[in-house]
Design a binder for these strands. Structure first.
Lengths: 189, 189
DNA sequence: GGCATTTGCCTATAGTCTATAGGTAGATGT
DNA sequence: ACATCTACCTATAGACTATAGGCAAATGCC
Protein backbone atom coordinates (compact mmCIF):
# COMPACT_ATOMS: atom_id res chain seq x y z
CA UNK A 1 0.00 0.00 0.00
CA UNK A 2 1.70 3.18 -1.17
CA UNK A 3 0.84 6.21 0.90
CA UNK A 4 -0.82 9.14 -0.80
CA UNK A 5 1.17 11.79 1.03
CA UNK A 6 -1.75 13.83 2.26
CA UNK A 7 -1.40 16.90 4.42
CA UNK A 8 -3.71 19.74 5.44
CA UNK A 9 -1.86 22.02 2.99
CA UNK A 10 -2.13 19.70 0.00
CA UNK A 11 -5.78 19.01 0.77
CA UNK A 12 -6.52 22.71 1.05
CA UNK A 13 -4.85 23.44 -2.27
CA UNK A 14 -6.64 20.58 -4.00
CA UNK A 15 -9.88 21.79 -2.44
CA UNK A 16 -9.27 25.27 -3.81
CA UNK A 17 -8.67 23.83 -7.29
CA UNK A 18 -11.84 21.79 -6.97
CA UNK A 19 -13.71 24.94 -5.99
CA UNK A 20 -12.48 26.82 -9.04
CA UNK A 21 -13.38 23.96 -11.33
CA UNK A 22 -16.76 22.94 -9.96
CA UNK A 23 -17.88 25.63 -7.52
CA UNK A 24 -17.29 26.01 -3.81
CA UNK A 25 -20.47 24.11 -2.95
CA UNK A 26 -19.05 21.06 -4.74
CA UNK A 27 -16.11 20.95 -2.35
CA UNK A 28 -16.80 17.85 -0.29
CA UNK A 29 -14.53 15.48 1.56
CA UNK A 30 -15.77 12.69 -0.68
CA UNK A 31 -14.85 14.52 -3.86
CA UNK A 32 -11.48 15.43 -2.41
CA UNK A 33 -10.84 11.80 -1.40
CA UNK A 34 -11.63 10.68 -4.96
CA UNK A 35 -9.12 13.22 -6.25
CA UNK A 36 -6.37 11.61 -4.16
CA UNK A 37 -7.67 8.08 -4.80
CA UNK A 38 -8.18 7.58 -1.12
CA UNK A 39 -11.16 6.75 1.09
CA UNK A 40 -13.09 9.65 2.64
CA UNK A 41 -12.36 8.47 6.17
CA UNK A 42 -8.65 8.91 5.54
CA UNK A 43 -9.01 12.66 5.35
CA UNK A 44 -10.06 12.91 8.96
CA UNK A 45 -6.47 12.35 10.05
CA UNK A 46 -5.59 15.68 8.44
CA UNK A 47 -8.76 17.71 8.81
CA UNK A 48 -11.14 17.82 11.73
CA UNK A 49 -14.17 17.97 9.46
CA UNK A 50 -15.54 19.50 6.31
CA UNK A 51 -15.91 22.88 8.02
CA UNK A 52 -12.18 23.00 8.65
CA UNK A 53 -11.48 22.28 4.99
CA UNK A 54 -13.75 25.11 3.87
CA UNK A 55 -12.28 27.48 6.43
CA UNK A 56 -8.76 26.68 5.24
CA UNK A 57 -9.74 27.29 1.62
CA UNK A 58 -11.30 30.60 2.65
CA UNK A 59 -8.13 31.64 4.47
CA UNK A 60 -6.00 30.62 1.51
CA UNK A 61 -8.14 32.70 -0.83
CA UNK A 62 -8.01 35.76 1.44
CA UNK A 63 -4.24 35.39 1.65
CA UNK A 64 -3.76 35.04 -2.09
CA UNK A 65 -6.07 37.93 -2.83
CA UNK A 66 -4.32 40.18 -0.31
CA UNK A 67 -0.94 39.23 -1.81
CA UNK A 68 -2.03 40.15 -5.30
CA UNK A 69 -3.58 43.40 -4.22
CA UNK A 70 -0.47 44.31 -2.21
CA UNK A 71 1.65 43.59 -5.25
CA UNK A 72 -0.57 45.67 -7.49
CA UNK A 73 -0.66 48.78 -5.33
CA UNK A 74 3.05 48.76 -4.41
CA UNK A 75 4.62 51.99 -5.57
CA UNK A 76 1.37 53.53 -6.73
CA UNK A 77 -0.77 56.29 -5.33
CA UNK A 78 -4.02 58.12 -5.94
CA UNK A 79 -6.02 57.09 -8.95
CA UNK A 80 -3.33 54.68 -10.09
CA UNK A 81 -3.44 52.84 -6.80
CA UNK A 82 -7.22 52.74 -6.79
CA UNK A 83 -7.31 51.25 -10.26
CA UNK A 84 -4.56 48.75 -9.53
CA UNK A 85 -6.30 47.63 -6.34
CA UNK A 86 -9.67 47.27 -8.01
CA UNK A 87 -8.30 45.42 -11.02
CA UNK A 88 -6.30 43.00 -8.92
CA UNK A 89 -9.44 42.31 -6.95
CA UNK A 90 -11.68 41.77 -9.95
CA UNK A 91 -9.07 39.75 -11.84
CA UNK A 92 -8.68 37.37 -8.94
CA UNK A 93 -12.43 36.90 -8.67
CA UNK A 94 -12.63 36.13 -12.38
CA UNK A 95 -9.64 33.82 -12.47
CA UNK A 96 -10.60 31.95 -9.30
CA UNK A 97 -14.36 32.02 -8.92
CA UNK A 98 -14.42 29.12 -6.49
CA UNK A 99 -11.75 30.58 -4.24
CA UNK A 100 -13.42 33.96 -4.40
CA UNK A 101 -16.66 32.35 -3.26
CA UNK A 102 -14.71 30.64 -0.50
CA UNK A 103 -13.35 34.00 0.65
CA UNK A 104 -16.90 34.84 1.68
CA UNK A 105 -17.28 31.69 3.75
CA UNK A 106 -18.46 32.64 7.20
CA UNK A 107 -15.52 32.61 9.62
CA UNK A 108 -15.87 32.76 13.37
CA UNK A 109 -14.76 36.14 14.73
CA UNK A 110 -11.32 35.17 16.00
CA UNK A 111 -10.42 33.26 12.85
CA UNK A 112 -11.51 36.30 10.85
CA UNK A 113 -9.42 38.60 13.03
CA UNK A 114 -6.33 36.47 12.38
CA UNK A 115 -7.02 36.23 8.65
CA UNK A 116 -5.73 38.27 5.75
CA UNK A 117 -9.08 40.05 5.80
CA UNK A 118 -7.38 42.53 8.09
CA UNK A 119 -4.77 43.29 5.41
CA UNK A 120 -7.57 44.01 2.95
CA UNK A 121 -8.96 46.72 5.17
CA UNK A 122 -5.47 48.16 5.75
CA UNK A 123 -4.74 48.29 2.05
CA UNK A 124 -8.03 49.99 1.31
CA UNK A 125 -7.11 52.60 3.89
CA UNK A 126 -3.72 52.98 2.24
CA UNK A 127 -5.39 53.69 -1.11
CA UNK A 128 -7.48 56.38 0.50
CA UNK A 129 -4.44 58.20 1.81
CA UNK A 130 -4.16 59.62 -1.68
CA UNK A 131 -7.53 61.29 -1.22
CA UNK A 132 -6.99 63.01 2.12
CA UNK A 133 -10.12 61.93 3.89
CA UNK A 134 -10.44 62.61 7.60
CA UNK A 135 -12.10 60.13 9.97
CA UNK A 136 -14.83 59.00 10.10
CA UNK A 137 -15.12 59.64 6.37
CA UNK A 138 -12.20 57.37 5.73
CA UNK A 139 -13.94 54.43 7.38
CA UNK A 140 -17.11 55.17 5.45
CA UNK A 141 -15.12 55.24 2.23
CA UNK A 142 -13.39 51.97 3.08
CA UNK A 143 -16.77 50.32 3.48
CA UNK A 144 -18.14 51.91 0.36
CA UNK A 145 -15.20 50.83 -1.78
CA UNK A 146 -15.32 47.32 -0.36
CA UNK A 147 -19.01 47.16 -1.22
CA UNK A 148 -18.49 48.29 -4.80
CA UNK A 149 -15.63 45.90 -5.50
CA UNK A 150 -17.25 42.96 -3.82
CA UNK A 151 -20.67 43.69 -5.26
CA UNK A 152 -19.34 44.10 -8.76
CA UNK A 153 -17.30 40.91 -8.63
CA UNK A 154 -20.26 38.95 -7.29
CA UNK A 155 -22.81 40.29 -9.74
CA UNK A 156 -20.45 39.81 -12.66
CA UNK A 157 -19.73 36.23 -11.61
CA UNK A 158 -23.47 35.59 -11.32
CA UNK A 159 -23.90 36.70 -14.91
CA UNK A 160 -25.94 39.75 -13.99
CA UNK A 161 -24.16 41.85 -16.63
CA UNK A 162 -24.57 39.41 -19.49
CA UNK A 163 -27.96 40.65 -20.60
CA UNK A 164 -26.98 43.81 -22.44
CA UNK A 165 -24.44 44.45 -25.15
CA UNK A 166 -22.46 46.89 -23.05
CA UNK A 167 -19.39 45.04 -21.82
CA UNK A 168 -18.79 44.55 -18.13
CA UNK A 169 -15.26 45.83 -18.69
CA UNK A 170 -16.53 49.24 -19.75
CA UNK A 171 -18.84 49.61 -16.80
CA UNK A 172 -15.93 48.68 -14.58
CA UNK A 173 -13.71 51.37 -16.06
CA UNK A 174 -16.55 53.88 -15.77
CA UNK A 175 -17.12 52.92 -12.15
CA UNK A 176 -13.45 53.38 -11.26
CA UNK A 177 -13.42 56.78 -12.92
CA UNK A 178 -16.61 57.68 -11.09
CA UNK A 179 -15.14 56.68 -7.73
CA UNK A 180 -11.87 58.46 -8.31
CA UNK A 181 -13.52 61.69 -9.38
CA UNK A 182 -16.00 61.66 -6.54
CA UNK A 183 -13.37 60.84 -3.92
CA UNK A 184 -11.08 63.59 -5.18
CA UNK A 185 -13.86 66.13 -4.96
CA UNK A 186 -14.34 65.12 -1.32
CA UNK A 187 -10.73 65.35 -0.33
CA UNK A 188 -9.93 67.82 2.45
CA UNK A 189 -6.25 68.67 2.08
CA UNK B 1 -54.56 9.94 8.33
CA UNK B 2 -55.25 13.65 8.20
CA UNK B 3 -53.75 15.36 5.19
CA UNK B 4 -51.24 18.09 5.74
CA UNK B 5 -52.53 20.33 2.96
CA UNK B 6 -49.23 20.85 1.20
CA UNK B 7 -48.82 22.89 -1.95
CA UNK B 8 -45.87 24.35 -3.82
CA UNK B 9 -46.82 27.79 -2.49
CA UNK B 10 -47.04 26.76 1.16
CA UNK B 11 -43.80 24.81 0.88
CA UNK B 12 -42.05 27.76 -0.71
CA UNK B 13 -43.23 30.11 2.02
CA UNK B 14 -42.22 27.70 4.77
CA UNK B 15 -38.89 27.25 3.03
CA UNK B 16 -38.38 31.02 3.01
CA UNK B 17 -39.15 31.18 6.73
CA UNK B 18 -36.73 28.35 7.36
CA UNK B 19 -34.08 30.22 5.37
CA UNK B 20 -34.53 33.36 7.44
CA UNK B 21 -34.34 31.40 10.67
CA UNK B 22 -31.50 29.02 9.94
CA UNK B 23 -29.81 30.18 6.73
CA UNK B 24 -30.48 29.34 3.13
CA UNK B 25 -28.07 26.41 3.17
CA UNK B 26 -30.17 24.79 5.88
CA UNK B 27 -33.16 24.67 3.56
CA UNK B 28 -33.53 20.96 2.82
CA UNK B 29 -36.50 18.86 1.84
CA UNK B 30 -35.99 16.85 5.01
CA UNK B 31 -36.13 19.89 7.26
CA UNK B 32 -39.18 21.14 5.41
CA UNK B 33 -40.89 17.77 5.78
CA UNK B 34 -40.25 17.82 9.52
CA UNK B 35 -41.83 21.26 9.67
CA UNK B 36 -45.04 19.86 8.19
CA UNK B 37 -44.78 16.60 10.14
CA UNK B 38 -44.66 14.66 6.93
CA UNK B 39 -42.18 12.27 5.33
CA UNK B 40 -39.61 13.74 2.92
CA UNK B 41 -40.88 11.61 0.04
CA UNK B 42 -44.25 13.30 0.30
CA UNK B 43 -42.83 16.59 -0.90
CA UNK B 44 -41.97 15.18 -4.30
CA UNK B 45 -45.65 15.32 -5.27
CA UNK B 46 -45.44 19.11 -5.02
CA UNK B 47 -41.84 19.87 -5.97
CA UNK B 48 -39.72 18.23 -8.61
CA UNK B 49 -36.63 18.28 -6.41
CA UNK B 50 -34.68 20.39 -3.97
CA UNK B 51 -33.47 22.64 -6.79
CA UNK B 52 -37.04 23.60 -7.59
CA UNK B 53 -37.68 24.51 -3.97
CA UNK B 54 -34.63 26.75 -3.86
CA UNK B 55 -35.51 28.34 -7.18
CA UNK B 56 -39.03 29.08 -5.95
CA UNK B 57 -37.70 30.68 -2.78
CA UNK B 58 -35.30 32.77 -4.87
CA UNK B 59 -38.15 33.95 -7.10
CA UNK B 60 -40.29 34.75 -4.07
CA UNK B 61 -37.50 36.83 -2.56
CA UNK B 62 -36.87 38.73 -5.80
CA UNK B 63 -40.59 39.42 -6.08
CA UNK B 64 -40.93 40.63 -2.49
CA UNK B 65 -37.85 42.79 -2.74
CA UNK B 66 -39.03 44.35 -6.00
CA UNK B 67 -42.44 45.04 -4.44
CA UNK B 68 -40.91 46.82 -1.48
CA UNK B 69 -38.58 48.85 -3.60
CA UNK B 70 -41.40 49.80 -5.98
CA UNK B 71 -43.46 50.89 -3.01
CA UNK B 72 -40.61 52.92 -1.58
CA UNK B 73 -39.75 54.85 -4.73
CA UNK B 74 -43.34 55.54 -5.77
CA UNK B 75 -43.87 59.29 -5.98
CA UNK B 76 -40.25 60.15 -5.29
CA UNK B 77 -37.49 61.46 -7.49
CA UNK B 78 -33.82 62.36 -7.40
CA UNK B 79 -32.03 62.00 -4.12
CA UNK B 80 -35.25 61.04 -2.34
CA UNK B 81 -35.85 58.18 -4.70
CA UNK B 82 -32.26 56.99 -4.47
CA UNK B 83 -32.40 56.92 -0.68
CA UNK B 84 -35.79 55.23 -0.59
CA UNK B 85 -34.63 52.56 -3.04
CA UNK B 86 -31.43 51.90 -1.17
CA UNK B 87 -33.08 51.76 2.24
CA UNK B 88 -35.82 49.42 1.05
CA UNK B 89 -33.12 47.18 -0.34
CA UNK B 90 -30.96 47.17 2.76
CA UNK B 91 -33.93 46.82 5.11
CA UNK B 92 -35.14 43.77 3.27
CA UNK B 93 -31.70 42.17 3.39
CA UNK B 94 -31.51 42.79 7.13
CA UNK B 95 -35.04 41.64 7.91
CA UNK B 96 -34.84 38.56 5.70
CA UNK B 97 -31.24 37.38 5.52
CA UNK B 98 -32.16 33.90 4.33
CA UNK B 99 -34.44 35.14 1.57
CA UNK B 100 -31.85 37.71 0.55
CA UNK B 101 -29.30 34.94 0.26
CA UNK B 102 -31.83 32.98 -1.77
CA UNK B 103 -32.23 35.92 -4.15
CA UNK B 104 -28.65 35.26 -5.26
CA UNK B 105 -29.35 31.58 -5.99
CA UNK B 106 -28.14 30.84 -9.48
CA UNK B 107 -31.12 30.78 -11.86
CA UNK B 108 -30.96 29.43 -15.38
CA UNK B 109 -31.13 32.25 -17.93
CA UNK B 110 -34.76 31.93 -18.93
CA UNK B 111 -35.99 31.66 -15.36
CA UNK B 112 -33.95 34.75 -14.56
CA UNK B 113 -35.41 36.59 -17.54
CA UNK B 114 -38.94 35.84 -16.33
CA UNK B 115 -38.13 36.80 -12.74
CA UNK B 116 -38.58 40.05 -10.86
CA UNK B 117 -34.87 40.62 -11.39
CA UNK B 118 -35.92 42.47 -14.52
CA UNK B 119 -38.02 44.87 -12.43
CA UNK B 120 -35.00 45.60 -10.27
CA UNK B 121 -33.02 46.78 -13.26
CA UNK B 122 -35.96 48.84 -14.50
CA UNK B 123 -36.41 50.53 -11.15
CA UNK B 124 -32.73 51.35 -10.91
CA UNK B 125 -33.01 52.98 -14.35
CA UNK B 126 -36.04 54.90 -13.13
CA UNK B 127 -34.05 56.27 -10.21
CA UNK B 128 -31.37 57.45 -12.55
CA UNK B 129 -33.83 59.46 -14.63
CA UNK B 130 -33.50 62.09 -11.94
CA UNK B 131 -29.82 62.41 -12.78
CA UNK B 132 -30.06 62.86 -16.56
CA UNK B 133 -27.44 60.36 -17.60
CA UNK B 134 -27.15 59.49 -21.29
CA UNK B 135 -26.41 55.98 -22.47
CA UNK B 136 -24.12 54.13 -22.01
CA UNK B 137 -23.45 56.00 -18.78
CA UNK B 138 -26.87 55.06 -17.51
CA UNK B 139 -26.13 51.36 -17.86
CA UNK B 140 -22.78 51.81 -16.18
CA UNK B 141 -24.48 53.63 -13.32
CA UNK B 142 -27.14 50.91 -13.00
CA UNK B 143 -24.40 48.34 -12.56
CA UNK B 144 -22.44 50.51 -10.18
CA UNK B 145 -25.46 51.18 -7.96
CA UNK B 146 -26.44 47.52 -7.99
CA UNK B 147 -22.90 46.64 -6.94
CA UNK B 148 -22.87 49.09 -4.06
CA UNK B 149 -26.25 48.07 -2.69
CA UNK B 150 -25.63 44.39 -3.07
CA UNK B 151 -22.07 44.58 -1.82
CA UNK B 152 -23.03 46.61 1.22
CA UNK B 153 -25.91 44.30 2.15
CA UNK B 154 -23.71 41.24 1.78
CA UNK B 155 -20.75 42.59 3.72
CA UNK B 156 -22.98 43.93 6.47
CA UNK B 157 -24.75 40.56 6.77
CA UNK B 158 -21.37 38.84 6.95
CA UNK B 159 -20.44 41.00 9.90
CA UNK B 160 -17.66 42.78 8.02
CA UNK B 161 -18.62 46.12 9.60
CA UNK B 162 -18.75 44.91 13.19
CA UNK B 163 -15.10 45.45 13.95
CA UNK B 164 -15.02 49.20 14.44
CA UNK B 165 -17.13 51.48 16.57
CA UNK B 166 -18.45 53.44 13.62
CA UNK B 167 -21.96 52.23 13.00
CA UNK B 168 -22.90 50.59 9.72
CA UNK B 169 -25.87 52.94 9.56
CA UNK B 170 -23.64 55.99 9.37
CA UNK B 171 -21.48 54.58 6.62
CA UNK B 172 -24.65 53.77 4.75
CA UNK B 173 -25.91 57.33 5.00
CA UNK B 174 -22.49 58.64 3.97
CA UNK B 175 -22.44 56.28 0.98
CA UNK B 176 -25.87 57.42 -0.21
CA UNK B 177 -24.83 61.03 0.07
CA UNK B 178 -21.62 60.25 -1.78
CA UNK B 179 -23.51 58.56 -4.61
CA UNK B 180 -26.10 61.29 -4.90
CA UNK B 181 -23.53 64.06 -5.02
CA UNK B 182 -21.32 62.26 -7.49
CA UNK B 183 -24.21 61.33 -9.77
CA UNK B 184 -25.55 64.88 -9.74
CA UNK B 185 -22.18 66.25 -10.74
CA UNK B 186 -22.20 63.87 -13.71
CA UNK B 187 -25.66 64.75 -14.93
CA UNK B 188 -25.87 66.14 -18.46
CA UNK B 189 -29.17 68.04 -18.57
C1' DG C 1 20.13 -4.24 11.24
C1' DG C 2 16.49 -5.35 14.26
C1' DC C 3 12.74 -3.87 17.12
C1' DA C 4 9.16 -0.74 19.15
C1' DT C 5 6.45 3.10 18.27
C1' DT C 6 4.00 6.16 15.63
C1' DT C 7 0.91 7.28 12.09
C1' DG C 8 -1.27 7.10 7.47
C1' DC C 9 -4.73 4.90 5.32
C1' DC C 10 -7.89 1.08 5.69
C1' DT C 11 -12.76 -1.38 6.68
C1' DA C 12 -17.04 -1.20 8.95
C1' DT C 13 -20.77 1.24 10.43
C1' DA C 14 -24.24 4.80 11.49
C1' DG C 15 -26.77 9.09 10.58
C1' DT C 16 -28.57 12.55 7.28
C1' DC C 17 -30.21 14.09 2.87
C1' DT C 18 -31.97 13.38 -1.99
C1' DA C 19 -34.60 10.74 -4.96
C1' DT C 20 -37.58 6.91 -7.06
C1' DA C 21 -41.08 3.14 -7.09
C1' DG C 22 -45.06 1.44 -5.77
C1' DG C 23 -48.99 1.10 -2.25
C1' DT C 24 -53.11 2.79 0.45
C1' DA C 25 -56.47 5.74 2.31
C1' DG C 26 -58.88 9.99 2.02
C1' DA C 27 -61.05 13.39 -1.17
C1' DT C 28 -63.78 14.26 -5.29
C1' DG C 29 -67.31 13.77 -8.90
C1' DT C 30 -71.22 11.75 -10.95
C1' DA D 1 -72.57 4.40 -3.95
C1' DC D 2 -69.09 3.80 -6.64
C1' DA D 3 -65.05 4.89 -9.55
C1' DT D 4 -61.38 7.81 -9.92
C1' DC D 5 -57.89 10.67 -8.46
C1' DT D 6 -54.34 12.16 -5.50
C1' DA D 7 -52.00 13.16 -1.14
C1' DC D 8 -49.19 10.95 1.67
C1' DC D 9 -47.21 6.53 2.94
C1' DT D 10 -43.33 2.59 3.17
C1' DA D 11 -39.33 0.72 1.26
C1' DT D 12 -35.20 1.30 -0.81
C1' DA D 13 -30.86 3.04 -2.91
C1' DG D 14 -27.09 6.26 -3.48
C1' DA D 15 -24.17 10.20 -1.76
C1' DC D 16 -21.88 12.70 1.94
C1' DT D 17 -20.24 13.30 6.87
C1' DA D 18 -18.36 11.31 10.72
C1' DT D 19 -16.52 7.87 14.28
C1' DA D 20 -14.24 3.55 15.88
C1' DG D 21 -10.99 0.34 15.52
C1' DG D 22 -7.34 -2.35 12.65
C1' DC D 23 -3.13 -3.10 9.90
C1' DA D 24 0.99 -1.94 7.60
C1' DA D 25 4.34 1.49 6.23
C1' DA D 26 7.35 4.86 8.04
C1' DT D 27 10.21 6.44 11.74
C1' DG D 28 13.23 6.40 15.77
C1' DC D 29 16.27 4.18 18.80
C1' DC D 30 19.80 1.01 20.23
Amino acid sequence: MVRAGLSPERLTLAGAELADEAGFDQVTLSALARRFDVKPASLYSHLKNSHELKTRIALLALEELADRVADAVAGRAGRDALTAFANAYRDYARAHPGRYEAARYRLDPQTAAASAGVRHAQMTRAILRGYDLAEPDQTHAVRMLGSVFHGYATLEAAGAFDHTDIAAQQSWAWTLDFLDTALRSRSTP
